[in-house]
């Protein structure tokens, strides 16, 4: 066990527009990572602390995989790190390991970049011998990521896109609703994606009586239970998602509150991202000028 290693990026892959996969050196995290756990990264010294799910870990080589979607300045700064570059800091594994229920038939529902954190669940259920149905959704076919990986650990894969460019036209909850209407039965559901999607899916599974695990993504700072910024209401009680979760019983989660709290810094985020993009464009123009 060596402490204080540099978090080098050994591999970087572009999965879709503004979605990147990083394989990063983080041996202490790789050793202990379990499905559902996450890390908090700092891309550079002045960066915000940003939580990212551990999509895969390789304890032998001491690396973890992270899939990052550019949403604002923080994730844009991460996206700037190239192969061979490094993160200023990575801490983890954080959160509780996802509880892999011992069941016969499970349905996994993932939206957008949520496919990445779903992968460890899919692997775990698949190797537990459960029958795995995975529903993945994205805006368009180009935004669908990690399909091959998901297929290799699922018995059935269903796809939805908002524009119908692949699979069902619509959202993942439409696909699930259709399956349930067709009489499909599942013992358990896991759902990871935007809060609004998790809310819709939980509405369906509640009605169908399927216990559902969701992975919540409130705004975090330390990730160790010290700030309470990540608090969510589950079953009428305050929970800290970073230490009590991020996995929770989806039927008990107050999603409206989560969605509201996710907008805490809407204004600051916009300002920050805009100024970041302007400065980027500015520097591009400079270079064009030089060429011209």
């Amino acid at each position: 066990m060596t402490f204080g290693v540099e978090h080098r990026v050994v591999e970087k892959r572009n999965l879709a527009d503004k979605i990147h996969l990083f394989k990063v050196v983080a041996p202490l995290v790789a050793r202990r990572a379990k499905p559902g756990q996450f890390v908090i990264v700092r891309s550079h010294e002045r960066a915000e602390r940003i939580p990212l799910t551990i999509a895969d870990s390789d304890p032998d080589n001491g690396t973890i995989s992270l899939v990052v979607q550019e949403m604002g300045r923080g994730t844009a700064k991460i996206a700037e790190i190239g192969e061979g570059g490094k993160f200023a800091g990575i801490v983890g594994p954080l959160g509780r390991a996802g509880n892999i229920a011992s069941v016969n038939k499970v349905v996994l529902i993932a939206g957008g970049v949520g496919v990445a954190p779903m992968l460890p669940y899919a692997r775990a259920y698949h190797s537990s011998g459960a029958h795995v149905t995975t529903i993945v959704g994205a805006k368009t076919r180009d935004m669908l990521i990690l399909l091959d990986e998901i297929e290799s650990v699922s018995d059935v894969v269903m796809v939805s896109t908002d524009d119908g460019s692949l699979g069902v036209k619509g959202v993942v909850s439409d696909v699930l609703a259709r399956l349930l209407a067709d009489g499909e039965r599942f013992d358990h559901a896991v759902c990871i994606g935007p809060a609004v999607m998790m809310k819709a899916v939980c509405g369906l599974t509640r009605e169908a009586g399927i216990p559902t695990t969701v992975s919540l993504n409130p705004i975090m700072v330390d990730g160790t239970g010290m700030c309470g910024g990540c608090r969510v209401t589950v079953g009428g009680e305050i929970k800290f998602a970073c230490v009590d979760g991020p996995g929770f019983d989806g039927h008990a989660v107050d999603f409206d509150e989560l969605m509201s709290r996710q907008r805490f810094y809407e204004r600051e985020e916009r300002l920050s991202y805009d100024s970041y993009r302007t400065s980027k464009e500015g520097s591009h123009r400079c270079r064009l000028d030089q060429i011209g």
């Binding site: 002045r46 960066a47 915000e48 602390r49 300045r73 923080g74 700064k77 700072v221 330390d222 010290m226 700030c227 805490f264 810094y265 600051e268 985020e269 300002l271 920050s272 100024s275």
Partner: peptide, 19 residues
């Protein structure tokens, strides 16, 4: 923590926001 550890009082140079 936002203000001291993350230096949010120097936002946006330091990237963590604070109200």
């Amino acid at each position: 923590t936002r203000s001291n550890l993350m230096k949010a009082y120097l936002f946006p140079e330091h990237e963590t926001p604070i109200r």
